[in-house]
Design a binder for these strands. Structure first.
Lengths: 213, 213, 213, 213
DNA sequence: CATGAATGAGCCTTCATTCAT
DNA sequence: AATGAATGAAGGCTCATTCAT
């Protein structure tokens, strides 16, 4: 009865592929609207209109508004981690400072692309810090992954003699803090500058400090 | 600190004093609720209930919800600046490093006290980055004031030979970024640590860098 | 501050009285709409329009749609019990048959007045028989109260020698069943007949049976 | 009635037979879901899922939700009448009391089997008493058929001298009322009892009355 | 005929704001 | 000034129905 099986290679994976693409399209639209209107102003209708479908369709792909946003967060998180891992692999034979530079540039660029989204989701996580624990957890887990990679990198730096080991545990946090500020200021300034230009003083201060030698 | 008290004649200043106190009470309540529930979950009814008055009364003191929140932001901003100025004055005769330390501790403590508020208001500013320009402006203006004081401090640092002058323009931003991360992580960690313990590695890294000398 | 106490006799009870009247008005309107449109077709907007207020107002008096309907059920239930108790008291010195007749007439009349409501609420109870247990419970509890009174009445009948005691436990149920059918057929027939005319054969059959003696 | 079936050639009647079986399967599924979830909670998707087909398929067999439910009601109605007629034929040579007992047992058992359905459909009929006249009519027509058969039976009873003729016109209604109550209480009690055990006191009271002789 | 994704009108509910007392 | 009931626009979500494949 259901044996309409023509000579198709992957009937199921076709379905699933299409479903995945539709989900991705919705998430892209959601990010756009989110970036433009902010979290609470983003109505399901707006997202639907942006994709060019009707509201009901959104609910064929996501349980509710909340789940849609979580899916968006998760997807972008996974994308960033993939980027970073690619970069780390690419630069395997490179000295610490250059690797760190590449790593941070990845973050900077990804964050710039998705900045409004990130701030909006951070905001959301903070607001519901108490309830919806699992939600915040997944968000923090992602950043912990990034931190982890920075720690590994830091160990290379220590081995190379490029880093003092005493404060090593603080480096990832401080780097990420400064990165976040960088991105934030970029956004507010509305004058995007080349990534390397922004990273140079950051790295210089991080490695050599503000005090004269 | 709240020294709005000019030497005015009784009748008016009495009125105004009471009005100001009522406003302050409302703002305190608003901050509490905001901290507990987040921006969008904070209803006017909740604030009113917290103060112990009825909704209508709030509208005798503030145009609308938006203005109330702005007033709250402005008040806390002014308070922080007052704190910083007091601290700067207190430490006038002190060397750069100690002054910076005191300055940052002020920020850290004030931010810890009002953390939820700050994150909630930041969120709000970002969301309406496009509309409500004047609002974001006032918020940024406040932080520019803080930055300004850090710059002054930096100049002292350069004069004392405690800072390299080349990257001086980046110092305030980097310091504030790291401070913000510090506060953020404090909140998420839910294990408040003594301010000085947190500031020590930050200052060490800032001044001496991560690279061995 | 709240000491506006003018020479009013019952400031609070005034408030409460008005609140109760408003609730009652809403419930009356709800019953009308319910009777006209049925349970699922009854929208909150319709009820509000019927009372002449806006939707929001309904929510100042009832948690949600469900609670409003429950309140309606409870109120009508209490009214019926009050009617019955009044009737029972009035007829204390009367013989069994007459008392039963009066009792049943009360039910018949109350049920005719609120028939659509009753059927609609019964329906609702049946539907959610599994979930919302407490809800159905309250409804059944009310009818159990009616049954209880019928049992008491039956005891009088037995004592008077007007009833065979063997099947006494079945009498309340059978009487109520026949009453319910009576009311139902009245509704469907759309030709309301005088209560006594309907009750006479019912009582005759109940007491004397269908078989010739 | 449905005798559109002329003596046609196989292929078409094959088609129709299959079509009828598919319809029956859908109606069975619908009844299950209806019984479990209630009228308004029963979604077309649920029915489809229960049959193991997709929603669209339902619409190949029934105009819309409403027609599907009506078809279900009609089918169960026809089934009950068939049962009753079989029973009446079987007991042709039996005295009145036994025939009545058999007749009522048929109703009781059929009603128990389909109870949730019946209550749900009754509810539906009552709700739309005003619109959809024809719908309620078909439902009532069915019960009128049952009543008719009870009347015939009653005539036998009168002839046999087992029934007083004066109230004969009320007997069918009263019997059906008590039956309905019986079934309803069975459902709510959730402790199914043997049919005869339930019917005995009912018949006793109906025939001999509650008053001692 | 079967499929199931898409549709979109419709409903419940929330909450900032108003205004008569 | 204080009160708090009333307002009603707005948004999230449901689900019967359609239709292209």
């Amino acid at each position: 009865m259901n044996a309409r099986s023509t000579s198709r290679s992957k009937p199921q994976s076709m379905r699933m592929r299409m479903k995945e693409e539709a989900r991705a399209a919705i998430l892209d639209a959601a990010e756009q609207v989110l970036a433009e209107q902010g979290l609470q102003a983003t109505r399901m209708d707006d997202i639907a209109a942006r994709v060019g479908v009707s509201v009901g369709t959104l609910y064929n792909y996501f349980e509710d508004r909340q789940q849609l946003l979580e899916a968006l967060r998760d997807m972008r998180g996974r994308e960033l981690l993939a980027l970073l891992d690619t970069e780390l692999e690419r630069s395997l034979q490179t000295p610490y400072r250059a690797r760190l530079h590449g790593f941070l540039r990845c973050i900077l660029e990804h964050s710039r692309t998705h900045f409004r989204l990130l701030s909006v989701l951070l905001e959301d996580s903070l607001r519901h810090g108490d309830s919806r624990e699992g939600d915040l957890d997944r968000h923090l887990a992602m950043w912990r992954e990034v931190s982890l990679r920075l720690e590994h990198l830091g160990q290379q730096g220590v081995k190379e003699g490029a880093l003092r080991p005493e404060d090593a545990s603080h480096y990832p946090a401080m780097l990420l803090d400064m990165m976040q500020g960088l991105v934030l200021r970029q956004l507010l300034a509305k004058q995007p500058a080349p990534a390397d230009e922004l990273l140079a003083p950051l790295l210089r201060c991080f490695l050599e400090g503000a005090a004269p030698r």
